[in-house]
Simulated scan of single mutants.
Amino acid sequence: MNNQPHNRPINPVPPYIMALFLVLIGIEAVLSLADRGIIGGPLAVGWRMSLLEKYAFSPRVFWWMIENRVFPAEHMIRFVSYAFIHGTFTHALFGGVFVLALGKMVGERFGALATISVFFMATVIGAITYGVFVGGEQLLFGAYPGAYGLIGGFTYLLWLRMGEMGEAQIRAFSLIGMLLGVQLLFAVLFSGPKDWVADIGGFAAGFLMSFVVSPGGWAKILNKLRQRSD
């Protein structure tokens, strides 16, 4: 028998993360082709704008639902659907790459259900954060709040590891600090949209949710609660 070790590729991306990535890029591919008139005919040029108007998160619609205490499904879906529509191919590509890279790292530790839950909960919380603190007429769209939720999960893993190694756990937040610093700089210099507010909400949701959905996370919380009650 050949006892030589086999060269194996790097751990593959979990299939559910790859599926999420393909959906994001697939929708954008169709819209990009339509923008260029390659598919759909002349009317296809307006597909992106039509989808944004119908499925992007709208702070105006958000406050209308709250004020009137009416929550129709056609508007509630916006809390999730906005993540699958982007402004340009580059916008979608970077969002997809974030999801692919962070989803792989978090998914290998959290598992399928927990990882997907973090992504979608961060997407919802990111939208709510944007609606509450930004408001106005500017639509929110793109996978970034959900991706930042995965960054929150990754930060949680680093935070745990540094605690086990006796290192300063604040260092686990260096990645999110750098990313938000760059976003704030661009927002100040170019007066861009304030979608970074949604990203902060998504990150916070992902980090805090990791305490519950990570393997053994809920048990750790219960143990700490029992220790305090004793």
Rank of each mutant, 00 (worst) to 15 (best):
residue 50 S to Q: 08
residue 65 M to W: 10
residue 23 V to H: 07
residue 31 L to H: 00
residue 34 A to R: 03
residue 52 L to G: 02
residue 30 V to Q: 03
residue 12 P to C: 06
residue 40 G to D: 08
residue 20 L to V: 06
residue 95 G to Y: 06
residue 115 T to F: 03
residue 43 L to G: 08
residue 103 G to F: 04
residue 13 V to C: 15
residue 110 F to K: 04
residue 38 I to P: 00
residue 67 E to P: 01
residue 15 P to I: 12
residue 35 D to Y: 03
residue 114 A to G: 10
residue 30 V to Y: 12
residue 70 V to T: 14
residue 91 H to D: 11
residue 28 E to A: 06
residue 9 P to D: 15
residue 36 R to E: 15
residue 46 G to L: 09
residue 108 E to P: 01
residue 74 E to M: 10
residue 13 V to N: 09
residue 79 F to N: 09
residue 19 A to T: 15
residue 93 L to K: 06
residue 55 Y to P: 01
residue 18 M to Q: 15
residue 59 P to K: 07
residue 114 A to I: 04
residue 58 S to V: 00
residue 98 F to H: 05
residue 102 L to H: 01
residue 61 V to S: 03
residue 33 L to D: 02
residue 103 G to Q: 06
residue 114 A to C: 11
residue 8 R to L: 15
residue 21 F to C: 02
residue 54 K to M: 09
residue 67 E to K: 15
residue 107 G to M: 08
residue 45 V to E: 11
residue 46 G to Y: 08
residue 63 W to A: 04
residue 76 M to Y: 08
residue 42 P to T: 07
residue 26 G to P: 05
residue 42 P to K: 08
residue 109 R to C: 07
residue 6 H to S: 11
residue 64 W to P: 01
residue 54 K to I: 06
residue 70 V to N: 14
residue 41 G to T: 08
residue 10 I to R: 10
residue 89 F to W: 14
residue 92 A to M: 12
residue 30 V to N: 00
residue 17 I to Y: 02
residue 104 K to E: 02
residue 47 W to Y: 13
residue 67 E to W: 13
residue 44 A to L: 05
residue 110 F to W: 09
residue 11 N to K: 14
residue 61 V to E: 11
residue 23 V to K: 02
residue 104 K to F: 04
residue 50 S to T: 12
residue 19 A to C: 12
residue 18 M to H: 11
residue 34 A to F: 06
residue 108 E to R: 13
residue 93 L to T: 11
residue 113 L to M: 10
residue 20 L to P: 00
residue 21 F to G: 00
residue 102 L to Y: 03
residue 60 R to G: 00
residue 27 I to S: 02
residue 91 H to C: 08
residue 88 T to F: 03
residue 48 R to V: 00
residue 77 I to H: 05
residue 112 A to K: 11
residue 29 A to I: 06
residue 93 L to M: 13
residue 28 E to M: 10
residue 45 V to H: 12
residue 105 M to E: 13
residue 9 P to T: 11
residue 115 T to N: 07
residue 75 H to I: 07
residue 104 K to A: 05
residue 37 G to L: 06
residue 103 G to W: 04
residue 79 F to S: 06
residue 60 R to N: 07
residue 71 F to H: 11
residue 58 S to I: 03
residue 21 F to W: 12
residue 49 M to K: 10
residue 99 V to E: 02
residue 64 W to H: 13
residue 68 N to W: 09
residue 103 G to T: 07
residue 96 G to H: 06
residue 46 G to R: 08
residue 12 P to M: 04
residue 44 A to H: 01
residue 64 W to E: 11
residue 99 V to T: 12
residue 62 F to P: 01
residue 5 P to E: 15
